[in-house]
Write a protein that binds this DNA or RNA. Structure first.
Length: 566
RNA sequence: UGGCCCAUGGUGUAAUUGGCAACACAGCAGUUUUUGGUACUGUCGUUCAAGGUUCGAGUCCUUGUGGGCCAACCA
């Protein structure tokens, strides 16, 4: 405790560099803005599942609130009733919670519909908004292009009274969908397209997931987002770069309305190699059956990664490492895998599982005998304790751990070779049996009784340690081996449609893996390291008599890498 | 003949705000190891270009180049 600095606020960032948003916040704090408050928000639209990009945004917004002892709301930006659903609200809420954050408040833009309507009326009264009867095509034609100015709508100069009347009747449902819109009256010649009399309200005779049929006019993003920020007294409204051109409109509306001046700041969206993170693309993968659903373990969705066996701690650490900036980026997904391994290495219990079994018969081991061998649960965590695993005359080992004609660099089993069975005994291969196809079906070995793990007096030094499972005690399981969903770094930049780059081997199902008996009661959410194979987690598809495991990530594998190079 | 944003090793970010370009991942080589895991050590490699300001520029200015964004009754 003596090394703990007295002044927490001062020590807060000593030594660690700030990202550009933290710099803005600290400057604001130093200048006494917002009474020293920091209030952010995470504002998803409930029209899809959250993905890796959102995970980073969640960590940013909630992380900032934590760091500066502020608040962070979860606000659903639900102003488009056509695409939004309760299912998405539920998954998003769960994902945020699972990520380890608790929103200060859970709110909805739709909570503010009445207030937002009032804001619109206020703008009309100030002569800053008007009802336009033009068709969508006419409005588009009058909009101009980025290089040419637009033209004023013939309805632009309607009187305040007429606008008020029309807008009220829009609300009452007197007009057909698409027949009228409310637009801000700004500048049709602005070089910023978003200032060319942007839409504020549109008519949609649609059922809303929360307000039901109460409304038939709905505010556009620009009429809702900044105002919601303002209503919640958000101090720092953080969004992605594509909203930069919206900022003048964000500020214009707040200024004209005379409401709390929330400020918008933008950062570059994060892209990740070997995957896609656009809701439209992800929806396609789901709808076209390329994956089993939004939570398919190959999906970059938070729910998919969770099911895959990735941990929230790994995701948080990842978000922290990739940082936040304003330039285009493609984050190496290998860094996420590194974070997952790093976290799981400390937490996951080591267990024995054989994925491609090859039988070993210890010819000098008594039939019917079982020795319960003690083994460490996690060498990285002494507090994880120990357990016992059954050792018998007949065992399963990994087929890949034996070679009939091993090269020098291969130091596992071969004819005459020694091998250490983890937490068991050292064995030597005396003979092997093949079937008519030349496939090795069985190894005949002798074991060295004096080589027992922990009390080895044999003096033998095998080069490899192998995992194994007792034939008699093994429990069967299905194991789903997941790999990256795409074969190329950027599936979107190729010549072909991104789905052409889907990795045909992104899922390999092993129907008859064999596990040590201790795994009998494994439950989804748990993390295990299958010794020497990788990190695995039970899938919710598991049943009483059939366990299903998902591979989260392999172990780093120097041998596999060396083989690949050849 | 539009406006805006951006540019630092292979990747992602730093650089005490004008003072010796660094951290992580990846790569390579090695040590340790009852996981070809972990841990540890070493190593490779960086300021888009050209001018300018300055004793001094990744940082400031100008121009250029390259990339991105901006038109939806989407967010």
């Amino acid at each position: 405790m003596s090394t703990e600095p007295k002044d927490k606020d001062l020590s807060r960032n000593l030594g660690e560099p700030l990202n550009f948003i933290e710099e803005i916040i600290e400057k604001d704090l130093a200048e006494g803005k917002n009474d020293g408050r920091v209030h952010t928000r995470f504002p998803p639209e409930p029209n899809g599942y959250l993905h890796l990009g959102h995970a980073a945004s969640i960590c940013l917004n909630f992380g900032l609130a934590q760091k500066y002892k502020g608040k962070c709301n979860l606000r659903f930006d639900d102003t488009n009733p056509i695409t939004e659903e309760t299912e998405y609200v539920e998954s998003i809420t769960e994902d945020v919670r699972w990520m380890g954050f608790t929103p200060d408040q859970i709110l909805y833009s739709s909570d503010y519909f009445e207030q937002l309507y009032g804001f619109a009326v206020d703008l009309i009264k100030k002569g800053l908004a008007y009802v336009d009867d033009s068709t969508a095509e006419e409005i588009a034609a009058m909009k101009g292009t980025p290089k040419e100015p637009g033209k004023n709508s013939p309805f632009r100069e309607r009187s305040v009274e007429e606008n008020l009347d029309l807008f009220e009747r829009m609300r009452k449902g007197e007009f057909a969908e698409g027949s009228k819109v409310l637009r801000a009256k700004i500048d049709m010649a602005s070089p910023n397209m978003h200032l060319r009399d942007p839409f504020l309200y549109r008519i949609k005779h649609a059922h809303h997931h929360r307000t039901g049929d109460k409304w038939c006019i709905y505010p556009m993003y620009d009429m809702a987002h900044g105002q919601s920020d303002s209503i919640e007294k958000i101090t720092h409204s953080i969004c992605t770069l594509e909203f930069v051109p919206h900022r003048p409109l964000y500020d214009w509306l707040i200024e004209k309305l005379g409401i709390f001046p929330s400020k918008q700041y933008e950062f570059a969206r994060r892209n990740f190699s070997y995957t896609v993170v656009s809701k439209r693309k992800l929806l396609q993968l789901v709808n076209e059956g390329h994956v089993s659903g939004w939570d398919d373990p190959r999906m970059p969705t938070i729910s998919g990664l969770r099911r895959r066996g990735y941990t929230a701690a790994a995701l948080r650490n990842f978000a922290d490492r990739i940082g936040v900036a304003k330039r285009e980026n493609v984050v190496d997904i290998g860094l996420l895998e590194f974070c997952v391994r790093q976290d799981l290495n400390k937490k996951a219990a080591r267990v024995m599982a054989v994925l491609d079994p090859l039988k070993v018969v210890l010819t000098n081991y008594p039939e019917g005998k079982t020795e319960w061998m003690e083994t460490v649960n996690n060498p990285e965590d002494e507090s994880a304790g120990t357990r016992k695993i059954p050792f018998t005359r007949e065992l399963w080992i990994e087929r890949g751990d034996f070679m009939e004609d091993p090269p020098k660099k291969f130091f596992r089993l071969g004819p005459g070779r020694l091998g250490r069975l983890k937490s068991g005994f050292i064995i030597q291969v005396d003979d092997f049996v093949k079937d008519e196809n030349g496939k090795v079906t069985e190894l005949h070995c002798t074991y060295f009784p004096e080589s027992r793990s922990g009390s080895d007096t044999s003096g033998l030094k095998p080069k490899a340690t192998l995992h194994w499972v007792s034939v008699e005690h093994a429990i069967p399981a299905e194991v789903r081996m997941y790999d990256r969903l795409f074969t190329v770094e950027n599936p979107l930049s190729g010549e072909k449609d991104f789905k052409e780059y889907i990795n045909p081997d992104s899922l390999k199902v092993i129907k008859n893996a064999l596990l040590e008996p201790a795994l009998k009661n494994a439950k989804p959410g748990g993390s295990y390291q299958f010794f020497r194979l990788g990190y695995f987690t039970p899938d919710p598809d598991s049943t009483e008599d059939k366990l299903v495991f998902n591979r989260a990530v392999t172990l780093r594998d120097a041998w596999a890498k060396a083989k690949k190079k050849k």
